[in-house]
Amino acid sequence: MQRYLIRRLLSLLGTLLGVTILIFLLVHLIPGDPVQYLLGEHPTDEAIAALNAQLGLDRPWYVQYASFVGKLLQGDLGTSYITGYTVWQEIVERFPITFQLALYSVILATVIGIVVGVISAVKQNTWVDRLVVFFSLIGISAPGFWIALFLIWIFAYKLPIFPISGYDGFFSLILPSITLAMGEAGLIARMTRSSMLDVIKQDYMRTAQAKGAPHLWMILRHGLQNAVIPVITLIGLEFGALLAGAIVTETVFSLQGLGSLAIESIGKRDLPTIQGLVFFVAFLFAITNLIVDLLYSWFDPRIKYE
């Protein structure tokens, strides 16, 4: 186990190093000169040269890359060209909204998904089951931005209960969280259902039944125990992806989270913010994936690692 952990961490480091190269490459290939953007229309040549020097853009690319990675190693994500704040500060400012969104939607999706999935497995091949299967597929198939607009149309325009968009406390995160939860709930319900069905079909369930244990209790105990691994994986991966920025949802609801920060900084050619943020997101994503894998083994000691 320990060896496995070390190996995973090493490979994670390798991947993250690769990510820095990818990000650096992409960011520097983005057309449009950030200096031009900052100085406006008629900058003098001296002004351009001065700003280039100030931002360190006059250095050769490998020096710029080395400086980017060097700073990362010291935990410095860079400093925004536009606001003058460190990228870390920018992220800290935006993180709470994204985190809350991810948290609420995952909780919502998990509760709905598991409950519905269990019911549908227990009632396999009844109309309840079919309904659940159908609606989970709808949830998975519907574009998030469309669910969002639909919810806004119903609950903000037709029945003015919720704000149309913008952040104004917990209340304004309800619709976005539901939006995000829809697809996840569908996935979780499907996972739960199929895992439960596998279990129900297995022999020891019949054995348990023969022993006369109460039917529902038994299904829940054995079924959930076995469903828990794939569902945990799914939740973990989704949570990681959500933390990485629910870009579309944040855009529709005008929420100032990490996703909208990414879009804005690309639009403004704020190279340090793009680099730092994308790296942060990749880091977060990788860490959650690792945790999910570790949880796996915790929940199911049968899983062995080479």
Binding site: I164, G166, D168
Partner: peptide, 9 residues
């Protein structure tokens, strides 16, 4: 205020 809807609100 950062976005239109919040401003209107």
């Amino acid at each position: 205020l950062k976005d239109d809807d919040t401003r209107i609100l």
